[in-house]
Amino acid sequence: MSTRRQAGPSARARLHRFDLKGAPYLYVTPFFALFGVFGLLPLAYTALLSTTAWSPRQPGSEDASVGLGNYADLLSDTNFHTALVNTFGIGLLSTVPQLLLALGIAHLLNYRLRGRLFFRMGVLVPYITSIAAAALIFNQIFARDFGLLNWLLQPFTGGTPIDWRASTLASWFAVSVMVTWHWTGYNALIYLAAMQTIPYELYESAAIDGASRWRQFWHITIPSLRPTIIFTVIVSTIGALQLFAEPYLFDTTQNNNGGSERQFQTAVLYLYQQFWANGRYGYGAAIAWTLFLITVVIALVNFLLARRIRSAE
């Protein structure tokens, strides 16, 4: 564009230099401008908000500074503690089986298969299904009265249906099943991609040394996959901390309590409840910022652990 303009040689050279130096910044500007306004600014604003008692139901509360009062309240807010425990519990119950299953499935997909595309597409169907739709389908499956699972379990439960929403453990299990169903195939494909970069000679020489398939899996496949595994652990952990749609929809009254005793109310569901149902902007912001800090700490721990493992080798 600029080169076509008729200008003196020096002006043209200047244009050219500007093009070389300036164009890259121009190209990354749309991303950073929008990210700045809708990503960074709200994050900073959350921190600011969290020091106020702002509620749209109380005019003028916008400027009512409470310092770190909201955070102090969080420390003694047993509902928040319950929500954190639920989040970690469900997170553990969903992340661990999900990644282990994904490893196994990836291993199977890595064999030479007929109908490779069929199997890969099959395991990815849950990922294409929206979380909301999946949660609603599983709601029927986990229904106390006339749910599909309780029908299958009849021979074992002696006719007393399990109320999957009533107890802590049962509800954690049900929500974890939804999460696991949605993400396992996706993670399997990520592991599969990494497995395919492992040179076959490694397996060959191991086989010559008499290592069994199982030993090959443990001593070649898993170590080669370590960076990928760490990556998926970080991503799944962060995802688990954000869990919202499944527990929100699992209670069909959608009253945001996550069960009568808040047994499956997650942290983000609690944040949503404080913000949306109770109109507590300041308090909600304090929850959000606390969750953000927890996320950063967990990501850092993951990262440092990964580094430690690598340097130990």
Partner: peptide
Amino acid sequence: LFTLVVATMLVPPQLSIIPLYIM
């Protein structure tokens, strides 16, 4: 800047929901 992009991927957007709603 690229490191910033990667770090951004790890920031959960749900947490900015209240200011975003106000904005």
